[in-house]
Design a binder for these strands. Structure first.
Lengths: 204, 204
DNA sequence: TTCTTTGTTGACCATTTAGTCAAGTTAAGC
DNA sequence: GCTTAACTTGACTAAATGGTCAACAAAGAA
């Protein structure tokens, strides 16, 4: 019934790229339409506003990301190995993104969250929701590591907040200085926060 | 020679508040003029553009902040005490700002830096410059702590990057969830990163 | 074939926005 | 009190922006 269209997807892709490269506030509906090749009339056929589109794009992003995260943080993987893979995969992804566009992206949720938190309730809530999911992955890995006696972290939630803040801070830092190198320290930093003895490869 | 004016200062104050509450991209020149009570003609008498004003406001901010930072990070203070004071003073400032406007501000440099890094070269450079200054304070405190044998941190620069990313991440996190409580963990987190044994008050 | 639902288009409107300017006002210095 | 540099003002323009709409096109269902 009726014709089909991929305009919705094209709009969501476009808004993600534009927000990534610039910012939410500086991205206009006209730009989004130009980039996606969708006419403004069609934009308003699918979405009510820029905010509406951005929220949908975030949902879409998370929908694609979640299975990957579930795999990385599978309870069948050793707790600290989960965190290591998270760092490695995150780094790989940032390399891809930089190759594709020339600049470091960082974490769009964090950057966007800081930008819109006092402006757009709907977007803000969505972002908080997704960030909380990330937090849960960390927390469970840390709790498991503690339970197995690998680290000492009786308050897993607190440690998870630290790891999370550090990781996000580093990603944002990488974006600001446009340099992926700083991200290579992420794993070592997280191990430091968790109080894991440094694994000195040479001396071991 | 000629009349004097505080319009410049009023404009700088206004743009800071507006960027804080909203974002750089969503702040318009008209809003800045309304808030400061300065007419647009006068705006363009003093500044070339929004970017120009924002850059001046950052300079002004840092000019006021620097003496405070120099005091906190005075080499006459014990290294770890400097970091503690930095956390305490930072927290106090955030409390003030929240009382004044109802929302947590976080670090404007970091938030703004992540927003404009691919858009506005001039602002971006200024932000990087100031962030580097902050970094230097951390680094020198950490280096001193290491030299005094209080912590083990042969690579002070690297540790400083970690501490810095963590602190900025936490501030941004506080902004996103609009909750100052998370900032109370900052000192403990930094001590964790530096590998300082937890000072358990009760057991000591 | 024809009907109906779904999606597309370009023209259109009202506001907002950045930016200009000539004429006016104020105060410091002579 | 006069001059002049420093600042102010409001009216203006052009462009960008968000948003609407009626007419049109395509594709599946009857």
């Amino acid at each position: 019934m009726g014709r089909s269209s991929d305009a919705k997807e094209r709009l969501m892709d476009a808004v993600q790229e534009l927000i990534w490269h610039g910012s939410y506030g500086s991205t206009t509906i006209d730009q989004i339409c130009d980039k996606s090749g969708v006419k403004k009339g069609s934009f308003y056929y699918f979405f009510d506003s820029k905010c509406d589109l951005a929220a949908a794009a975030l949902d879409d992003m998370w929908l694609k990301k979640k299975p990957e995260m579930d795999a990385i943080f599978s309870p069948t993987t050793a707790p600290l190995e989960r965190l290591k893979r998270f760092c490695d995969e995150g780094y790989k992804r940032q390399v891809e993104l930089k190759a594709h566009c020339g600049t470091v992206r960082g974490c769009p949720l964090f950057t966007l969250g800081a930008e819109v938190c006092n402006q757009d309730q709907k977007l803000h809530n969505k972002i908080k929701e997704i960030l909380e999911q990330y937090h849960k992955y960390m927390e469970s890995a840390i709790r498991d590591a503690h339970a197995q006696g690998i680290i000492h972290a009786p308050d897993a939630a607190s440690k998870a907040r630290m790891v999370f803040a550090y990781g996000e801070g580093l990603l944002t830092q990488a974006r600001i200085v446009n340099d992926l190198e700083v991200l290579r320290e992420m794993h070592e930093g997280i191990m430091g926060i968790l109080g894991v003895q440094k694994v000195t490869k040479k001396a071991a």
